[in-house]
Design a binder for these strands. Structure first.
Length: 568
RNA sequence: CGGGGCGUGGCUCAGCCCGGUUAGAGCGCCUGGUUCGGGACCAGGAGGUCGGCGGUUCAAAUCCGCCCGCCCCGACCA
């Protein structure tokens, strides 16, 4: 493409609304333009990158036997009521005002609708169906450019199986395909065990790209490779004080003590001797959660451990129920609460906790002896440098972008929608499903987060909108311009994707900076400096490496360098 | 949805507290000329209902109210 006749609107200044590098660079390099909050137009350059990512995804999905569908974005409300997800999605689902339709935020329902009408027998299974399409979610707060939008492109695939072994197989096929997709996309990624949340099902994993711009927090072990979303992560933290048991409970006056740190200072004991009480409603009934010292409760882990609905207790309800303020709640003598304790408190003795009376605490608590604990559960939030649960090495905590998520759904959707088949014995059984998503824009944004510098984007050849950025330094020199025009034709004829900066009246520095901003992997520079000697300059964007080659060998050298870059 | 910030030519911003010339700057854009290896220079020029509505005032970009939009933090995130 000739720059002079194309629409590549670059920006010299950083748009005020963008705060993360990928968002700033996608705007500055003319990949996207905002239309409204969380809604972006993809411009020619950006769409070329998107199409490259989609091609990689398509190839790998086809390789595991996936069949591509094109599904309706408009769905009748009824199918969403059948699975009860209209309620589950709540305000996140877009609803039309003048028809009983919704804009699909995902497509399990449509897939089940097709399957229940068409899949009759185990002989029709297994199937892998996928789509790469726009999905719509009324995100409460769109953010970070294209990373969380209200309208976005998603590859979703759905596996349909007759057996649980079949589901495992389909799930593993997807995990392997995803590894190839992200590797080919030039992303350094890792896989974490994840919470399946309201999606339901028996297991899920997320594909993560480490980035400070990410919304997810992950716990990583660089020694053995343990990796988990903070929502499910655990560590090998030792239990708290087990010694010095046997003493009588005693009431301790603790005037105006509000926090664990204040209490520890006031009593001159370690925070580990203290048991913190938190109160929640579990399926509407009050529960008290005991945590060791300053350990932070993780609400997602609590939710998974207890099941059902878990919601926080309001401070006013609390005083009413317990007769004490939050700082003085404790597990002993509290009426109407079931008590759960974090695993670290198992066997704990000589502990101090609230006395359910303002300004008083109880000492010498032996958890097993004095507290009626319903169950010991792992609900604490892992902190950096705690020991890895698998190998005890020091854990690291990192922010990450979720670029993919795979779920074993089981029969949740096929049950509620009546998507069944007849097995070998003639009995009717629900189809066993899995679903597997990839955020296409997130691949691009994550790639830019991982591959940029002060000057701009630095694409891997596979995702780059163009492979070669050809620059003619001075268009007023007819000889130079003529040669550049011919070289452009030769490169294109050789099957290369070339962007050719043939603009007149644009200074060399401007062209160089635009080329670095756009970030095509290889720059070919035609300027007087080398031209008069019969040479052409090649510059590798990422490394800055420059190579001067003879005009007669340019096309071959370009291909060779690109091959090297692609292999790197 | 709660908290905070912002809204002035295409972009980045100043002016607003303390109301009062014709609303400014840099960049970009148009015309002519010069220049041509790291965001050039000279000359001339176009472009703004100061987010919207209402109010106060002799007078509002500026003060007050309501609304809209965008960004950030939090809640939320199949």
């Amino acid at each position: 493409m000739r720059f002079s006749t194309s629409f590549f609107p670059t920006l010299k200044e950083i748009p005020a609304d963008a705060t993360i590098p990928s968002h700033q660079l996608m705007l500055r390099a003319g990949l996207i333009r905002p239309l409204a909050a969380g809604i972006y137009s993809f411009l020619p350059l950006g769409y070329r990158a998107i199409k490259k990512a989609m091609t990689i995804i398509r190839e790998e999905m086809d390789a595991i036997g996936g069949q591509e569908f094109h599904l309706p974005a408009l769905n009748p409300i009824e199918v969403w009521e059948e699975t009860d997800r209209l309620k589950a999605f709540g305000d996140t689902i877009f609803r039309l005002q003048n028809r009983p339709l919704v804009l699909a935020p995902t497509h399990e329902e449509v897939i089940c609708f097709i399957a229940r009408n068409e899949v009759r027998s185990y002989k029709n299974l297994p199937q892998i169906w996928y789509q790469i399409q726009t999905k719509f979610r009324n995100e409460a707060r769109p953010r970070s450019g294209v990373l969380r939008g209200r309208e976005f492109t998603m590859k979703d695939s759905y596996s349909l199986d007759a057996t649980w072994e079949g589901l495992d197989h389909a799930y593993n096929l997807h995990a392997e395909a995803y590894k190839k997709i992200y590797s080919r996309s030039g992303l350094k990624f890792f896989i974490v065990g994840a919470s399946s949340g309201a999606m339901g099902g028996t297991g899920s994993q997320e594909f993560m790209v480490e980035s400070v711009a990410g919304e997810d927090t992950c716990v990583l072990c660089d020694h053995c490779g343990y990796a988990a979303n903070l929502e499910v992560a655990s560590s090998r933290m030792p239990p708290v004080s087990q010694a010095e048991g046997g003493k009588e409970l005693e009431e301790i006056h603790t005037p105006n003590i509000r926090t664990i740190d204040q209490l520890a200072a006031f009593l001159s004991v370690s925070t580990e001797r203290l048991a913190k009480s938190l109160v929640y409603r579990h399926n509407s009934k009050p529960v008290l959660i005991l945590m060791a010292g300053n350990d932070q409760l993780n609400e997602t882990k609590l939710q998974s451990a207890l099941g059902g609905t878990v919601e926080p207790f309001s401070p006013t309800d609390l005083a009413q129920f317990t007769g004490a303020d939050a700082g003085s709640i404790g597990p002993i003598g509290l009426q109407g609460f079931k008590v759960f304790a974090d695993l670290r408190l198992k066997g704990a003795k000589n502990m101090i906790s609230g006395a359910n009376r303002n300004d008083y605490h109880l000492g010498n608590i032996d958890i097993e002896r004095d507290v009626d604990v319903e169950a010991f559960i792992d609900v604490r939030t892992v902190n950096a440098s705690e020991p890895c649960p698998d190998c005890a090495a020091s854990l690291r905590i990192a922010q990450a972008i979720e670029v993919g998520h795979i779920f074993k759904l089981g029969t949740k959707y096929s049950d509620s929608m009546g998507a069944t088949f007849l097995d070998e014995t003639g009995s009717e059984r629900p189809i066993i499903m899995g679903s597997y998503g990839i955020g296409v824009e997130r691949i691009i944004a994550a790639h830019i987060e991982q591959h940029h510098d002060e000057s701009g984007i630095s694409w891997d050849p596979v995702l780059a909108p163009f492979e070669v950025h050809l620059i003619v330094v001075n268009t007023d020199n007819p000889e130079l311009l003529g040669y550049s025009d011919r070289l452009y034709g030769d490169l294109v004829a050789a099957g290369l994707e070339v962007i050719y900066d043939d603009r007149t009246g644009v200074s060399p520095g401007f062209k160089f900076n635009d080329a670095d901003l756009l970030g095509m992997p290889l720059q070919v520079i035609i300027g007087g400096k080398h031209f008069s000697a019969g040479n052409v300059e090649l510059k590798v964007r990422r490394s800055g490496l420059r190579r001067v080659v003879a005009q007669s060998t340019v096309v071959g050298e370009v291909k060779k360098l690109l091959a090297e870059l692609a292999a790197a």
